[in-house]
Design a binder for these strands. Structure first.
Length: 276
DNA sequence: CAAGTTACCTGACGGC
DNA sequence: TGCCGTCAGGTAACTT
């Protein structure tokens, strides 16, 4: 379930193996992803071109080509990218293989196919923020993401706090796990109505979201479930969750029993004492 | 227009 | 043993 930290870890993991490499061959599986690209379009925009930078925006990974074309990956629930020797066995659910000129291969694997692959032609990449990312909110580490921004955005809404921060238009990259962890760190209840949150509380939440995400990136991304880091070694660092999946356990602050409740259709974990 | 619900997928797991 | 229901959650499309 790659959220922002996991995508960032994948990016850092594969970037050195991709930059400066040109694309020699592309192989697609016959399975459809949530969104995918035809082999014909891939070949036209990618073959013979060189990857110049690997970036991230929200939970998307962006491979910029020297032609200015852009190959974009979203990992959905179970997606992953890795670099392999050409003769490494093909895994079940490998949906895209991009052979590079140095006889290595970038492989996109996605068991549940909630992931997506997008390809933008050079002329489509000039103003990404107003096109592809038109509805995507600020990055959590951007100055634009601050207490005042959240306060103003929330004041006319009645949503639960957790749903609000998981909405990509509010802030990019926060999924269920880090929403739970950030709210616990900020001592805020997931079910609070967002129009009742004070500016001071929003400021605290911004600070805690950044701290939680930064910590997760530093831990190499979480290794929960089927996330595997870019070098394909499962779990080299394990993020220690304080609240996610801990229902029935004692709160690390006050020893009360951690509760589980569905909020906005998603499993939510919280301490009813600390996050009153 | 905001907010809530469902569809898309596979695999792991628990109950019987 | 094996069958079935449930759950996991990112996002878009849908309904209320």
């Amino acid at each position: 379930m790659p959220e922002l930290p996991e995508v960032e870890v994948i990016r850092r993991g594969i970037r050195p193996f991709l930059t400066g490499k040109s694309i020699k061959k592309i192989i697609l599986s016959d399975k459809k992803l949530r969104h995918s690209v035809s082999l014909w379009d891939m070949n036209r925009e990618l073959l013979g071109n060189t990857i110049v930078t690997v970036k991230r925006r929200a939970k998307y990974l962006l491979c910029h080509l020297d032609s200015s074309a852009l190959l974009i990956f979203h990992f959905g629930m179970t997606g992953n990218l890795g670099i392999f020797p050409l003769d490494a066995p093909i895994a079940k659910h490998d949906h895209l293989r991009i052979e590079l000129h140095n006889d290595t291969e970038l492989r996109f694997n996605d068991t549940r196919r909630f992931g997506s692959i997008h390809l933008l032609r050079p002329e489509e990449t000039v103003d990404l923020e107003n096109t592809f990312f038109k509805t995507t909110g600020p990055e959590p580490f951007d100055a634009a993401f601050n207490g005042e921004y959240l306060f103003n955005r929330a004041k006319k809404k009645t949503q639960p706090l957790k749903t609000f921060i998981m909405t990509n238009a509010t802030v990019a990259g926060i999924g269920n796990i880090y929403a739970n962890e950030s709210l616990f760190a900020a001592r805020l209840s997931p079910v609070r109505k967002v129009n009742k949150i004070s500016l001071e509380e929003w400021n605290t939440l911004v600070k805690e979201i950044r701290r939680v995400l930064q910590h997760a990136i530093a831990c190499g991304g979480s290794t929960i479930s089927d996330f595997v880091n870019a070098s394909q070694e499962s779990g080299y660092f394990q993020m220690n969750f304080k609240i996610y999946g801990k229902d029935g356990d004692k709160c690390s602050i006050c020893s009360s029993i951690i509760q589980k409740q569905v909020v906005g259709g998603r499993a939510s974990f919280y301490c009813s004492v600390c996050q009153g």
